[in-house]
Amino acid sequence: MKEISAIIRRDKLPETKTMLDELGYPSLTIQSVDGRGKQKGAMCAEMDSEMPDSYCTAVKLTPTPSVYALEHTLPKVALYVPKRMLTIVVPDDVVSKIVKSIIKVNQTSQHGDGKIFVLPIEDAVRVRTGEHDGEAIA
């Protein structure tokens, strides 16, 4: 069993759910999360150049005294981008198929499409019946 955690765009969620339905793995958990990636939350790289520096200073996070020593590496204000995180637990053999499908549905070729993580899961239990492992997620 593997857990697939996909952090995706909010507006791609319905499509992703439909796709998972069609593949026959409709069970999922959705969470609203905020995050940022390698681009450090810069959602609007083009807009950034037009934005006056004073704007960024105004909204920049105020460091607390204990972090003054830290070098603040961001050239522009760091934003957290709201995302949806889906968590699904599936058998080993379909992991690559599902990952490929999620990538296909969510690709916009713009930054911020998200990340998919695959984690090992040791055991699963269905609370209602007490079933374990494969039966619990079947």
């Binding site: 952090i7 969470q31 609203s32 999360v33 905020d34 995050g35 940022r36 990636g37 390698k38 450090k40 996070l61 460091p63 972090v67 830290l70 070098e71 603040h72 590496t73 961001l74 760091a78 957290y80 995302k83 995180m85």
Partner: peptide
């Protein structure tokens, strides 16, 4: 978050 960023780990998800 600022400390992680300073050390070169800017990517994170929080909830």
């Amino acid at each position: 978050v600022l400390a992680l960023e300073g050390a070169g780990f800017p990517s994170l998800t929080k909830m």
